[in-house]
Design a protein around this nucleic acid. Structure first.
Lengths: 146, 146
DNA sequence: ATTATTTATTTGATATATCAAGTATATTTA
DNA sequence: TAAATATACTTGATATATCAAATAAATAAT
């Protein structure tokens, strides 16, 4: 199954790629805040841009299960990056509010995320990146409609 | 840089792609054996092709941590896909032997893996797949040397 | 208004990811 | 050959992934 041709291996290369990328992300993030993970950072940035977003929509944005998002947020509350209140308009929902610590962290994180992307995509042309994106979306659509 | 999602660039699309692919893999595998995971299947197939491989080398092949491999194998022994013996030539190592149940499963799995790949890569030309592979390896190398 | 259904989130169980520290054996060095 | 180092693997702690089942609140149907 692990063959030499890209046809047999490219899907594993995709997995390898994202793992290597997450490694440099985590490394660079830890220089700034050593009690936060890549996924927690993503949630923080999403909440910063969408203050009223629901957990379900967060899950969709970062391709995670609702259960995972619940637990990620739980830890972020514990670490004082977020506070959580019941939404009075719809009591099933939570209002997630970024704390001062969270806000400070976001300011520090922005350049790190930019650098991570720049590092990973270094030497690739815009055309190549667009093509990569196109091919990946084709694979996603193949999997979803199967 | 392509902003498909608030957080996102093509690097998140890579993550999404592998998640969708793993989903169809798991779905198709479960039709055949409902007590085995995608990762356990990979280990099984690797052991089938390399009967004397060490856990460390398995880890390298599937881009996993040694600790993860230890636990994956533990579960496979528990489920009677493998047996484990101490290697008498080097007592630090384990000899991993595929059981009858494991062998039967491999036979059933081979066409499933083929189908999974075919489904995911459907409609992509060989050129596109080779280009995808090339770009991904460039990203991996960017991350590793950073 | 009561019941049925849907929606948002949580919880439990199990698997994997990652790092660091630990154990046992093997190999190298002094 | 004893001590130092390296190797193969395990274990512990914490985070995330996934599915299924459970809550609880909102909405739709009767």
């Amino acid at each position: 199954m692990i063959q030499k041709t890209p046809t047999g291996t490219v899907l594993y290369t995709i997995e390898q790629t994202i793992k290597e990328y997450r490694k440099i992300c985590q490394r660079n993030i830890q220089k700034i805040a050593d009690d936060i993970t890549v996924d927690q950072c993503l949630v923080l940035i999403i909440l910063n841009d969408n203050t009223t977003i629901s957990q379900i929509d967060i899950a969709k944005l970062i391709f995670k299960d609702n259960a995972s998002v619940t637990r990620i947020i739980e830890l972020m509350v514990k670490k004082d990056y977020l506070t959580r209140e019941t939404d009075e308009l719809d009591k099933r929902k939570s209002k997630l509010i970024i704390t001062e610590k969270g806000k400070k962290t976001i300011v520090l994180l922005a350049p790190v995320f930019k650098l991570n992307r720049k590092t990973a995509l270094n030497g690739l042309s815009l055309d190549e990146i667009e093509l990569l994106d196109k091919i990946l979306h084709k694979i996603i659509s193949n999997c979803k409609t199967s």
